[in-house]
Nucleic acid binder design. Sequence first.
DNA 1: ATGACGATTTACT
DNA 2: GTAAATCGTCATA
Length: 228
Amino acid sequence: MTRIVGEEARRLILGPADKAARRLIGAVLVRVLPTGERLSGRIVETEAYLGVRDRASHAFGGRRTARNESMYRGAGVGYVYFTYGMHFCFNVVCGEVGEPAAVLVRAIEPLEGIELMRERRELGARRTRTGGTPASPAAEKKALRDVELCNGPGKLCQAMGIDRELDGVDVLSDGALRLELTAPVRRLGRGTRIGIDSAGAWAARRLRWVEAGSGFVSRPVGKASAGE
DNA sequence: ATGACGATTTACT
DNA sequence: GTAAATCGTCATA
């Protein structure tokens, strides 16, 4: 399948975050490790963070700090932040320079490097549970299925090795983290964003997008479960 | 300097 | 369903 990269891709994602969030479904995210090994996956779930008026956005009200500086650097920049004391989340910035709009990548369908992803996820999970001490027999038996490797914003960062060092990189250049667009995905589902309950009326906006029918999303849309 | 909290994940009842 | 883990960031003082 034809991959759209570089400046052509930048033009396609530049604009309102809701539009960019839809366009990014189906795009391929590629991580090139320092060893040269490749990890990649198709984006199957995104959320739009519209800009300074969006109460759920880190840039709400024009807030601009060291943490969210990348959001202001223009379309194609990656915004990686650390949260809950243990997880990273990855966004693709889609606004003009100075306008902090971005798309949170919430889930990908693993394509390349699946066994490396599994190692990272299982090691990480063990470390979280035991604080670095030897794992219990039960923990050692823990085996993650493919569908559990990247079905959440923190999980995919752990699997792909995305951390603070990749904050601010241009994902439309040939670097350690690359974005390759494909033809638009037709079958989309939408729902409300997850984990933003304190955002008032903005929490009700349906700014979350998934590839319809994908089994690799963090949670299905369209049901009355928490977060919908 | 301090305290509250988070665009999450996991385990447990 | 609920709670714990775990710490950088930010607003307040």
